[in-house]
Every structure is written in structure tokens, then in C-alpha cells.
Design a protein around this nucleic acid. Structure first.
Lengths: 326, 326
DNA sequence: TCTCCTTTTACTCAACATGAGGATAAGGAG
DNA sequence: CTCCTTATCCTCATGTTGAGTAAAAGGAGA
């Protein structure tokens, strides 16, 4: 199978944590490729060792440990990317790059070993995804840019399709905002030309001009991978208790809520969140209380592992901001 | 990246359809590998052409069209597999095989070109997944086999973990049957040694003896890929109207229900299904009626594409068989 | 010590969704 | 014209969800 041309297989890791109510992702310095511009953050990656690595996931865990000292807990495969025209290095004669991306969730920001590795706010790359303080203003910028892109469609049909896609992805039309479509939105912005990667991939940086681009760019197609990861996390917390991978062993319900909110990018109703989480059997109180700020002290809770046995899809049903009824 | 050893990249397609209330999958004859036994069905696969294929998905569509004459509609990436020890051909000096699996849904069983290609019932490979006529008897066989496997755990802790996994996966304990855990169940049966592939992969066919193995085997790790596909389809119909990819343009609500049931492997309440689907705006009546069998003639419906604009997660909330309350 | 401020926690209520099943409607077969 | 079969409509009890009010428990400052 497959010997038409040279293929290199790499493993990418999206390692996420949440600190101070901000989702973070571990990035490394990209060894400058592409145009000579400010260096873009990259996701950590490593090669697949065809001989030694028994499975892809084990291979990933290995080099992550070696490079960063992190021992990954929760890991899941995300997606495999191999778009020919999103890989600038290939235009310079390199092999076709196929990267298998993984998502890992780790507790807190542990000190990371590797040089150049750094935790960054996920929403710096996707400012349009954080609705915790209401509709982000970037959305307005997007809304303004859409018509031009729509008009540029080749046929009436295509223009119609573009209108619908934009409407759906950014909740411009009737349906509300769907937190899970992170990837679709990024891809759409790529097509519209509102993210820098679209121009560098096509070797058309010169044409950017004074256009305002949204969010920080990453190396190669890494922002797309990160978008996939955020989509996945948001989807997963709904029906699987993965948030607890990000929490300390004990926590108050409000802390838990804040972490869920930060990932979902939406604020939640406090009382209802508590009801969901308690009546759903996801947590149990430890008699202890939190030595805390502000008002009445809060009880510390811990994750009830047994819930996995009892219920089928334990998680947080995160609502989406509704379209305001006129 | 990645030059430690030789790697071959292949694309696998799980092409599914539903005919006569049975989910079907397109299989091809595997060019005999592994022990000299009856030939096992394989999933169609093709190489990635590093030069020509712009994306993995386009490459897949191309060779599927060439090999089978099928023009795929709905396609999504499933998962990337590369387990070293599940690839018998590699033990004979071949390269490390990495396969990117895709799921495609096609309408009806169109005539297929390729020689050796054939539609087979999905549940022939997973007899424990079809609960439409109540709990399948195979489950009993599984339940009997579990204790021995549990006992064989190395530590008390491991035995406990095994018990929990089996309980969860097969609904032997308190929680009910979760239709989505198709892959987990197959993998568990692989570990327990109840599927043939477990023995061939380990080169221990001799030890099978009179053990009763469950479901038909497939080539290589293709049954695992198929399990992944079934998991995905079952999950997806819940919140995305993918079933319509499998339906003719017009259909009765009962036909639709039967297709959903066949995929979910569960029977549904007729009246409630109708309510869900109609009030959810998923379909709209065409005034026409079905020239039909049996009783009162049924109206023909069609998919309401607009629902995508209006609602966020349109689909069929498929319930799971509840544990009978004692 | 008393009062105010803050945050946690407990409860209530309406709207809506879901599971189950009864009752009608509309055909065909005899 | 009657019976049989399936489609369609409707009701009812029970849950789940969104939203909000009210009480409880601490600290800070007068």
C-alpha cells in the first residue's frame, strides 16, 4: 500500500489544562518555517517510531514524557490531517506530511520541562469562541466580512450555500450559537480569508494589506488541530465526565462550574448547575469546607467515580446562548 | 519527522447502507493472508497517493469510485489505526501499516462494480449488538465467559477493573445497555478471547480448541474498524440527521423508523417516534401516499433540509433498553 | 455586638420533553 | 358490511430544564 511518493507520519498533541478560568494549551516554538515573520506557536509533535511504538497513543505518551516531562492521563485521538496544500514545508521539497492529532487533558499547569514550551490561552487563537461575557465583538467584524465573500461565489447556488454556511456557523440567522462547531467556524474563516494561515498557505501574504485578521495564528495547520480539540472537548463534557481530569481531587461546585464554563465558553446558571451535578450523582460532598474568599464558605466535593457504573452518559448538558426573541 | 522504519499509509472505507431493515456493509475478498483458512471479508481499502490526492477524503472518494463505481455522498473520517501487533502481514517483514478509516453512508444497495465486493449484514459480525428482538442470546454466552477472564487478572485490583469493564460494556450490572459502546464491547471480547481475530493476531489459533467464538471474523483489524463505524453512526443519528443519507427521497415514517431501529439495534415506540420526527421539523409530508401493504395507507414524507438552519442538533434521541426493574 | 455584604445552598414554578398507551381513521380481504 | 391491519391523533403521568426567590453562613466594619 501507499508508496506513491514520500510520506512522513507525525503525532501531534493538544495538551489542555484550565488555570484561572482560562483554557490553556501547551505550545512550543516552531523552528521558523514559512515566510520570515514573527515565530508562530506550534503544537508539540513527534515522529512515529514504526519499530518501537506499539500503538500510536503509546508512542505519543512516550515522546511527550521525554520532551516535556508530562505524564499524560486522559488521552484520545482527535483526527488525522494530511492536506497537501496546507503544508508550506512541502512546497520546498519535503515529504507529504500526515499528522495524527491527539487530545490530552491534564490537571492544573504543571511545570513543563522542554525549552520553548509555554502555556497559552486557547481563546487567544479563537477570540470568537468565548461568549462568557456575552457576544464577542469580533463576531461583528465577521458579520461585516461575510457579504463580500458571499458575493464572490461563482454561481447563485454557491452564493446561497455560502450564505447558509455563514449563518449556521456563526449563528447569524435564526438558529442560535452552537458551541460545538469550533472547527467549522475556523474553516469558514480560513475560506473567507480572515485568518492569517489562509494567506500564508497560499503564498499570498503580500495581498493581506490592511485587512484585519482574527486571532493569533499558529504554525502549519496547528490552529485547525486546536479547533478540532476544542470542538471535541466541548462535545465530550456533555456526556462524559472528562472535566474531572482537569480538576484537583477536591473542589467547590463553583470552581467546577467555572472550569466547565471556560471550556464551553458560556456562562451557566449557578443553581441549576449545582442541581445537575449533585442530582446526577457526579460528585459527592466531603464534609470539609473551602478556606475561601467572599461570602459563605463552600463545601468541598470530589468526583464520584461510581457514577460511571450507574448512569449511561453522565456529563454536563451545556446549553447554547439562545437567539434573542424579538 | 518519522523515518524510524518503513510506514505504509492506507485508506479504509466502511461503506454502509440499509436494506430490508438490515444495516449492510460493503466488503471485498481479502487476498488470503494469515493462516490458510476460509477467506475473510475485508473492508475496501486503497493507498494514499502522496502526490495526487489533495486531501485524504478526496483520495478515498477517488479510489472508491474507481474500484466500485460508487459515488460517495456523505463521508466522514473515523479513526486512524496503527497497532503494531494487530497486523499479521507485518510479522512477515512488511512495513508498518497505518490505516485511516472513513465512514460513508449510501442510499440503498446500488449495484457494485468491483469483483469480490459484496454487501453483508453488519450484525453478522456483531450478533450481540442487535437488540431489536430483545436481548440477544449471545449475551448469555458472554456472561458465562466473563468470570474466567476476570479470575485471570493479575491482581485483585485488575480483577476488580475487569469486572467493572464487563459490567459496563455489556450492561450486566445496574446501568442499562448503551448502544454506543460498540467498539468497547468488541475490544473487550477481543481481550476475553471470544473473537477469532484475538487468536490469529497472536498466532495462537491452535489453542482455540472447541471454544465458541462469536460473530464472523474479518481480515486484519477490519472488524474493529467496523465496530468504530457502528459506534459512530449510532452516536451521530442522535444529533445529526444522517439517516436521510440512507433513505430514498420519499419515505413513510414507518420506513424511516425501521431504518433508525436497524442502526440503533433497538425497537422504538411508534407514536413517539412520529412525534419526535414531525414536531422536530425533520420531515414534511408530501400530499402523496404510499401504495402499500397491510392496513391504512401511509403518507410519504421527505427530509426538511431547512431544519439544519432552525435547530441546533436535530436527530433521533434513541433510548437504550432499560434494565428491567425488579 | 449588630448590621451589611457576599456567596453558598435550598426550594418553587412554569414550560417543555419523554415514555406509555388508548382511541380513531382509512384502507383491503372476505 | 364486517373484520383485520396499519397509520394517525390524543391524553396523561413523569421528568427535565430554565429561571428566579429566599434562607443560611461566614467576614468586615461601625
Amino acid at each position: 500500500m501507499s508508496r506513491s511518493g514520500d510520506i512522513a507520519v507525525g503525532l501531534n498533541a493538544v495538551i489542555m489544562a484550565v488555570t484561572e478560568d482560562q483554557p490553556r494549551v501547551l505550545t512550543v516554538d516552531s523552528t521558523a518555517e514559512g515566510a520570515a515573520e514573527t515565530e508562530r506557536p506550534a503544537l508539540p509533535y513527534g515522529p512515529l517510531d514504526a519499530e518501537a511504538d506499539r500503538t500510536l497513543e503509546l508512542g505519543l505518551r512516550d515522546w511527550v514524557r521525554q520532551q516535556t516531562g508530562l505524564d499524560l492521563g486522559y488521552v484520545e485521538q482527535l483526527y488525522t490531517f494530511a492536506d497537501r496544500d496546507r503544508d508550506p514545508s512541502r512546497r520546498r521539497g519535503g515529504p507529504r506530511l500526515l499528522s495524527v492529532a491527539y487530545l490530552a487533558l491534564v490537571r492544573e499547569v504543571e511545570k513543563v520541562a522542554g525549552e520553548g514550551s509555554r502555556w497559552r490561552d486557547v481563546y487567544a487563537f479563537f477570540p470568537w469562541e468565548d461568549w462568557r461575557d456575552g457576544r464577542p465583538e469580533v463576531i461583528e467584524r465577521i458579520r461585516e466580512a461575510v457579504p463580500e465573500w458571499e458575493e464572490a461565489g461563482s454561481s447563485a447556488e454557491e452564493r446561497e450555500r455560502r450564505a447558509e454556511r455563514a449563518e449556521l456557523a456563526f449563528g447569524l440567522g435564526g438558529a442560535g450559537w452552537d458551541g460545538y462547531q469550533v472547527l467549522e467556524r475556523y474553516e469558514l474563516l480560513y475560506e473567507i480569508g480572515l485568518v492569517r494561515e489562509a494567506w500564508t498557505d497560499a503564498d499570498r501574504e503580500a495581498e493581506i494589506g490592511s485587512r484585519e485578521l482574527l486571532g493569533e495564528p499558529m504554525a502549519l495547520d496547528h490552529r485547525r488541530i486546536l479547533a478540532t480539540a476544542l470542538s471535541r472537548v466541548r462535545g465530550k463534557i456533555k456526556y462524559r465526565p472528562v472535566v474531572f481530569e482537569l480538576m484537583p481531587p477536591q473542589f467547590t461546585l463553583f470552581q467546577l462550574q467555572k472550569v466547565v464554563e471556560s471550556l464551553a465558553g458560556v456562562e451557566l446558571h449557578k443553581q441549576n448547575f449545582r442541581r445537575l451535578v449533585e442530582k446526577g450523582g457526579l460528585v459527592e460532598g466531603t464534609g470539609r469546607i473551602d478556606p475561601q474568599t467572599g461570602g459563605r464558605p463552600a463545601e468541598l466535593f470530589r468526583f464520584r467515580r461510581e457514577v460511571l457504573r450507574e448512569r449511561l452518559a453522565p456529563g454536563f448538558g451545556v446549553p447554547s446562548p439562545r437567539p434573542p426573541r424579538a
